[in-house]
Amino acid sequence: MLRAVDTIPIPMPAGGRSLHRFANPGRFLRISGRVLPFLAIPALVLTVVGLAWGLLVAPPDYQQGDAVRIIYIHVPSAWLASGGYLSLAICAALSLVWRHPLADLAAVEIGPVGAAFTALCLATGSLWGKPMWGAWWVWDARLTSVLVLFFLYLGHIALVRAFDDPVRGYRAGAILALAGVVNLPVIKFSVDWWNTLHQPATLSLTGAPSMHVSMLWPLLVCIAGFSLGFAAIVTARLRAAVMERRIRGLLLAQAQTV
């Protein structure tokens, strides 16, 4: 069923290019409304299955015992911390170079979700580190660079909301988001470039994963579920943001005509 708001006819600029096809708010609401269930339902199913599998079915580790089950949350949230920041940076580039109007709203909505998953990554890492390493926290290159990522998210969240003129906030936030991209390769390669307490990557595109399949499958399911969940939450927030912007516009127009 199509909601009325999704069918608002707003004329498109002639010859709308592919990138700006989704800039039209009415079209965005219509398309995203159709896509959202296909993100949200698989996200819920995969996350529930993956977490239950990891918690109850997957075997313990020969050294870590059951504490290994924490990785079914830690690894997907670490992936989303970096992946979410990359999507924030892509929105920043779309905003600065192509002046895409939805990219600004998307960046504002990605920020808090990415920050929350980064916090989850840090917290679960800590909860694993205490019993395994013997310390809640160490200042090695991996942990420190992820903490910097968390602060970049917080900085972005604050900066985009710090200006009276939202457009100036979007610009400042986009510049911060792009500058912070330098941190992503540092996070990824910190465990290879320097001596760190954090272990090197288990999963890689080239080599065999040094993880038994009975643990690998639930981990991959969790990564897929978390990623779809992230996409669904950001899409829903963006839908709300588009509608809220239209509400503000209408109220402003009413105030001016009175």
């Binding site: 679960t124 909860l127 829903a236």
Partner: peptide, 27 residues
Amino acid sequence: YIAASYGLAVLIGAGFAVDAWLRVGRA
């Protein structure tokens, strides 16, 4: 440690999902 990790994950995931749902409905 395991319970705290899974608890936090569920709290954050469900929190953001419910918040987004309510926000869309309100708008």
